[in-house]
């Protein structure tokens, strides 16, 4: 499978096959202009390696950090990024949209 939209799942299954712990982040809702559509995936392994994207690169760092916490605790999280967010000065979407990203551990 070469399709780069499903590639994160391929990478994730390779990590699992090697016994690594993994998490999957998914864009579940967007408002206004957002760089990646609903359903976009970012796969993360315990070493912090990642595949795919949930934005143009502006929020990936924060999502990877949340994914590592989720790998650790097993707790899912719902992240919100946008200009109205408290974190906007730190991590946000330059394009002015808002996205919700769901982060879950893959058992």
């Amino acid at each position: 499978m070469k399709d780069i939209d499903t590639d994160p799942l391929v990478r994730l299954s390779e990590w699992r096959a090697k016994g690594q712990c993994t998490a999957l982040a998914t864009v579940v809702q967007t408002w206004g202009s957002s760089p990646r559509p609903v359903g976009s995936h970012l796969a993360v392994n315990e070493a912090g390696e990642f595949a795919g994207s949930v934005s143009g690169g502006c929020i990936e760092g924060a999502v990877i950090a949340a994914a590592l916490a989720t790998i650790e605790t097993g707790e899912t999280s719902m992240l919100e990024f946008g200009v109205t967010n408290d974190m906007a000065w730190e991590v946000g979407l330059a394009c002015g949209g808002t996205v919700h990203v769901y982060v879950e551990r893959v058992e």
């Binding site: 299954s13 999957l24 879950e104 893959v106 058992e107």
Partner: peptide, 11 residues
């Protein structure tokens, strides 16, 4: 996500 669900998805 349960492993059985992820496996079904990959399949």
């Amino acid at each position: 996500m349960k492993s059985s669900l992820f496996d079904s998805l990959c399949e």
